[in-house]
Every structure is written in C-alpha cells, then in structure tokens.
Computed example of a mutant assay.
Amino acid sequence: MTDTAERASVWAGLAAPVLSLVGVLLATLVSPSFAWTGNALSELGGPADPVATDLTRLLFNGGLIAGGVVALGFGYALLLTARNLVELAGIGLFGLTSLSMALIGVFPLPQAAHFVVAVSFYVLLSLALWVYGAGGVLAGDRTRGGVTVCLGVLNAGAWTVWVATGRVSRPGLALPEVVGAAALAGWTVATALGVRDRLDIAS
C-alpha cells in the first residue's frame, strides 16, 4: 500500500503540470480572438466575448482546478523526501501555491476573489521556489537547489519588469503570467522525477 501511495503521489507531480499548463495553452489555441500581446490568460476563463467561449472556460478553469488539486497529491512524495525544515517549509508553500492555482479556476473573472487568488498564486510561487531551493542547497544539492531558486527569480523578475514598464492591467498581461506558469510546470516535472529516483520507484 505504501509503495502504491508513493507511486501515485509521484505520478500526481507529473500529471499536474500537464492538466494545468496544457489546459491553458489549449484554451489559447481554441479561443476565437486571444492574443498574447493583447489579453490576460484569465480572460479565457471569464465571460469576455469573443476571447472566451464555453470550451475555453472548460479548458482554462477546469485545467487549473484539476491541476491544482492533483498537485496537492504530490505533496506526499515531497514530504517523504524532505531533507530539512527549510524544504518542509517550501513544501508547505508549494501546497498553498497549488491551492491558489485551483482557486483561480474556482473564482474566474470577473469575481472579486479572482484578483486576490491570482496575485497570491504568483507571490506564493516565487516564495515556494526560493524556500524549497534554499533547502536543497542546504542539503548539499546545490545544482538542483540553485536552479529552483533561479526559477523563483525568473517569475518575480517577469512581474518586476512588467510592473516597472507600465500599468499592470494593460494588454499583454498573459506574457508575465505564462512565465510563472511555465516555471512551475518545469519545476514540478523535474522535481517529481528527482523524487521518484530518491524513492527508488521504477518508471
């Protein structure tokens, strides 16, 4: 039973980014008028015609909800392989990040809670990567820990540049949004593979 739970948790780490990021990217493709330089990703899940349709709402909101919930299941494998208290703190922040991602889909535009959970997601994302990465460095895993910290910097940097160069809500908000989403997806897959090796789970 324990081996089954560990395997399922690792697979959750591999599946979560597919559900969320692929869902978002598919929504951009099927949208009648979405443009990376003209829209925010969240518009795909809202009522705004002609950017959003029933299909884009299903893909975007459903993908974020499913991906966030499944990502929480990855927490078990992360906890089993935590090497210090700093990594444990990072895992807790990862759980909050996953929950925030799911809530973006639960509270789509134009609901008032959408802004709160969307901002929380991107702030928590960098914090989770910084803390978990620092824990990896302290555990002697300098390369993986350093890359994790850099991904957190990448997310924060994208938003810093965006805020510094104009209004936050201007057209093209999807650009900094997708940077953080891609950073999270890449980290989750790479970490799930690393955790699988540490748990000695056959693929």
Rank of each mutant, 00 (worst) to 15 (best):
L125C: 15
L175I: 15
A156E: 06
A181S: 13
G73P: 01
G45P: 07
N39E: 11
L127W: 06
R57L: 02
G135T: 10
I91V: 15
A139N: 12
L29N: 09
A16E: 03
N84Q: 12
P176I: 13
G136L: 11
C150V: 14
P50H: 04
G45M: 04
D200V: 11
L78T: 04
G67W: 06
L25I: 05
G146N: 09
I91W: 14
N84D: 15
G90H: 05
A174G: 14
F121N: 11
T56Y: 01
T53Q: 04
G13L: 01
D49W: 08
A27Q: 01
D141Y: 06
D49G: 10
F34T: 02
Q111D: 13
L59I: 07
G68I: 09
G186H: 09
V163W: 03
L64H: 05
L19V: 00
G38P: 11
L44V: 03
T28F: 07
G38D: 06
G75L: 15
W11N: 10
V123R: 15
V51N: 08
A183I: 08
A190S: 11
W159T: 07
A27K: 04
Y132M: 09
Q111A: 09
V117G: 15
V69I: 14
L138N: 13
S203L: 11
L58I: 14
G172I: 07
W11A: 01
V51R: 00
S9T: 00
A158K: 06
G194L: 00
A128S: 13
S9E: 03
